[in-house]
Amino acid sequence: MLLVPCPHCGPRNQSDLRLVGATVPRPDPNATTPEEWGDYLYLRDNPADWIEETWYCRAGCRRYFTLTRHQGTNEFRNPPMPGDKVGTATYTTISVGSSGSQPGANIEPHTTGGAS
């Protein structure tokens, strides 16, 4: 049972969250081919290395976010910040103009804690 660093709720048992899966871009639905779409649906690289994946904090804040996890050691790094890329697009808080929204920001390593 992993301990997953939810950016909002703190460290949580894996069973409080749902692992959506490795974060893969969605092909253009109007220009894609069956091969490309099949890759998007079913094929993942599954390296013994760092991957970006999407988690859903279903028993807590109910937010989707991206974490970077090493599939060999299960270590997490690069805790997400508001504005980090999530899933196929960019994570910001919706509609409420919450603090720290930085649409378009990419994942950068954050070495210090706290909402900087």
Binding site: P79, T112, G114
Partner: peptide, 15 residues
């Protein structure tokens, strides 16, 4: 370390 990994949860003091 666990708390620091969760940036929007309760902040942690110091390094």
């Amino acid at each position: 370390r666990l708390q620091a990994a969760t940036v929007r949860a309760a902040a942690v003091e110091g390094a």
